[in-house]
Every structure is written in C-alpha cells, then in structure tokens.
Design a protein around this nucleic acid. Structure first.
Lengths: 266, 266
DNA sequence: ACCTGAACACCGTTCAAGT
DNA sequence: ACCTGAACACCGTTCAAGT
C-alpha cells in the first residue's frame, strides 16, 4: 500500500485510503487503525502481517492461516496483531489489495482490445495461482482497495477502446472478476485437499491425483443409468475433458464473445 | 436423497449413490457411512442432520453452522453426528444434493431454448436465495450428488435443443454453475455481515443498509483523483447502479449471448 | 449398531496490565 | 503508543466406554 512516501501520487492514494477506511469502518464496525510507516526489521506492522499471511496461504493453504499462526511466525501472540489490523476481515482486504497491485494491464490498442482483455483475465488467474489462497479473500469484498481500483480503471480503458457501453463496462468487470476469482477458489480448494496429505511437495503428485479423479468421474458419468441420464452418460467424455487452462480459456472466450454480442444487439 | 423406496428409479439412484460414494471416499479419505432408512422422529439420521443444517444456515448464516450447533439442536453431542456423516465436507455435499434436487428445469422448447436457459439460471439463484448459505457448500464440489446430476442432465437437454456443440454444453454448465453460485455466495456474505447485528429481523433493514453503502461507494468513486482514475470517477454512476437482479440479469444475458456467439463462429 | 462424555488440539477476539 | 499474558467462548474430530 505504501510504496514511496511523499509523492503526489502517494498523497492521492492516501486520500483514497482514508475515504475507503470510513466505508470499511461502517461495514465491519471497526475503528480503522492508522497505518504505520516504520519498516525496521523487528517491529510489527500491517505490512509485515500481510506479508506473512500471503506466505502462509501459499505454503499451508488459506484455511491454515490464522491470527495465531501469523503471530507465531512473527514471534508474538495473536493479541499483538490487533494493534495493526482491525480483524481477520480487514486482513483479507489488505492481502487482496497487495496482490492485485501487481497486476499489469496494458494500454489499450483499439485493434486488439478483445485479445488484450482476454489476456488480462488470463493474467489475473495466473497471479491468483502464484499466490494461492488470495482469491478467497476477494469474495464478498467491495473493491475499494487502491490496488483493486487500478485494475478496474485499466480494464475500463480496454473495454471503452472496444466501444463497450458504460453500463456494460461496469457490470462486466463484476462478472469477470467473480468468474476469475471463482475459478481460482475452486482450484485452491482442490489444492488444499491434497496439501500436506503427502509430506513431500504436492506439486506433481497433485497433478497425477487429479488425472486419476477425472478418470473416475468420467467412469461415473459413462455408467450412469441411461434411462435417467441419457445425455450426461453420452457426454461423459466432453464433460471431463480439457485441463484447467482449456476450461478457463473457454470461460474467458464466452465472456468476451458475450460482451461483443450484447453491444452489437443493443 | 430417499424419496419413495422400492421403485426402479430409486434402485438406479441408489446405484449411482454407491459409485459416487467410492469417489468421495478417495477424495476425502473417509469411509462412507451407509445411509440409514429409519424415519422415526427421535433417532439421528443423515437426513435429519442435513435438515437441521439447512435450517441453521438460513437462520444464523453459513459460518454459524457447526457440528456442535447442529448436535445441540438435535439434543445430543457433536460426536454423535459422526455415525451418520463422515465429516463437515460430506455434510456440505449432502446439503447441496438435497437443495439442488428441488430445481425444476423445463422440457426443451426448441423455439425458446435460450429464454428457458436464462430462466433456469434465474431459478437457480432464486433457490439459493431461498436457502441462504447453501451456495457456499458447492464451491470446489465435484457435482456427483444425484440431485446435481439431474440439473446437469436437464440443462444439457436445453443446450442441445439450441444446437450447442457437446464440448460447449459441458464447459458452459461449469461456467454457469460457478457464476450463479458465486453471485449467491457474495450476496450471502453480505447478508451475514448484517445478520444478528440487529436483534429484530434483518430483512428490510439489510436492504436499507445496502442502499446506504451503495451511496457511499458511489461517492468514493465519484471523488477519486481524476488524474489517476479518470474513467472510474466518470463511471461512478454506472459502476454502482442497478440492483442485484439487474446485475445478475446482465450476467445471465452475457453468458447466453456468449454461448450463441461462440457456436455461430465455430 | 448406535450413541456419548470427555478430551485433544485448536480458533478469533478482548482486556487489564505492563513498558 | 505499542505490546502481551491470560482468559473467554468457541471450533472439528477422535476414542474409549457405555447401551
């Protein structure tokens, strides 16, 4: 949240942050704890707490990250965190803000706005995948963190370059954000199921496991009683084919094609 | 899960259930506890546990439903539940199966397959809204519960009536299910934030609260520094306009329009 | 076969007391 | 101003013991 201090951009961002703080306060019933600027190694700060939270989400999964586990890694007790972060909900907000600030969306090229849009959604999923667990923080969030606002701003630029009407721009961002986060969350839940189950790194093992389950699911579909499930049993192969990228690619194509079609028809 | 006993349909469903049980067992590492047929009032059963869980999700919110709270309402301790339900994950599966079994999707009318499809998605959201909290159970779920399979089967019928290619049918069901569940979950998180906050029923109060927050959010957007957020501040009104139904309606239109466009172009 | 009490190893959050 | 120990009121799950 605090990059370089003193610049005009920084001041503007801080102003945004203050306004946002008011809304959050009313939402979560929490007095906003004012952020601290210190960066010295051994003092607690919201920044360090967020950092540890992100790291633990990746290493141990979203559900394993608790106020207590964060405090432990920081060498203190859970109570100490509450001087810098109002509660778990606010921590999730800060985590989302920090990660989304890393998304880079290109300046619009009117010739290729749709390809740029598709690529941006793919990049968003890739970022969530680099930081497993973070997508779960975004559910039900009002996207007011500065990092998230920048993403919206730049997505709108892309959409407007494609001549998308204002109302469609606004609503599309919601739909697309929800879809990307949803896919990331489902992958994440899947990942957590097979996390720690094997003591050695679950990376490739998870991949193999997944293929085994896909095979089993296909068998279930294929062997469904045809008198009750004629279509599902006939479509056993397409229902279970394609990897995560194929499926997500279809979803992205669907959203962008829908956007164009709606704009064209009215 | 068990409607009328002894029919051929019932036997077929049971066969499906057994296969599904195997897959779940490997997924969750749980021995499937065989379902009991008893319906007498005061005995524990998976059915009664699921019933209580659904009721509590509606009354107190998803997060407030715990093994302990369910046990308490059933007049026993949490340990007793584990004779009928393997764990919390399986309970969520059963809850989803029970609720999705209530969805009614019409026989396809080839002239109006797209309107039928849109209406079916609207009905799905309406059902989730009738049973708040249930949508959260569906995240990361492999849709193998009989009730969920029926929904897929009948959605495919609609899609095929519209000439949608097999692979698109399969993937579209995933995207649409995720979107509908995602919208329901976000509404649910919102609802829980304002649940119990006021002792009297939160129904209308929540609605008013929501309008207040929308107004605040619009103000934040409108007052964003124009040099950093020219588009977002200009689009403050469209970004925050429309109620939940308007936004969901747009999402549904987008998905269906996308489906048609993709089918037409390849 | 079904149920249970008690325990284990956890949670988020608060608050009086310290520095 | 910042930090902490201890406590409060909870979790899911297991297991030996009962019926």
């Amino acid at each position: 949240m605090k990059h370089v201090t003193g610049s005009a951009a920084e001041a503007a961002m801080q102003a945004v942050g203050d306004q946002v703080g008011q809304v959050f306060g009313e939402l979560f019933g929490s007095r906003r704890t004012k952020p601290r600027a210190s960066r010295s190694g051994d003092r607690l700060s919201a920044d360090r707490i967020v950092e540890v939270a992100i790291g633990q989400m990746r290493d141990r999964g979203y559900d394993a990250v608790t106020m207590r586990s964060i405090a432990k890694e920081l060498g203190t007790g859970p109570a100490s965190l509450y001087a810098h972060v109002a509660n778990r909900a606010e921590l999730d907000q800060l985590v989302t803000g920090r990660i989304c600030a890393q998304i880079r969306i290109p300046d619009p090229d009117p010739e290729h706005w749709d390809a740029q849009l598709r690529q941006s959604l793919v990049d968003m999923l890739a970022l969530y995948r680099e930081h497993p667990g973070v997508a779960r923080c975004t559910m039900g969030m009002i996207p007011l963190q500065p990092g998230v606002l920048v993403v919206s701003e730049r997505l709108i630029a892309l959409l407007k370059a494609g001549g998308v009407p204002d109302q469609h721009c606004a609503w599309f961002i919601d739909v697309a954000s929800l879809y990307v986060a949803g896919v990331a969350i489902e992958e994440d839940i899947w990942r957590e199921r097979h996390l720690g189950q094997d003591p050695d790194e679950g990376g490739t093992l998870q991949h193999v496991e997944q293929e085994v389950v896909v095979e089993q699911v296909r068998n279930v579909f294929a062997n469904l009683p045809a008198e009750h499930f004629p279509l599902l049993s006939a479509l056993a192969v397409p229902m279970t084919s394609g990897d995560a990228d194929d499926r997500f690619g279809f979803g992205v194509d669907l959203l962008v094609a829908g956007l164009k079609a709606l704009a064209a028809q009215g």
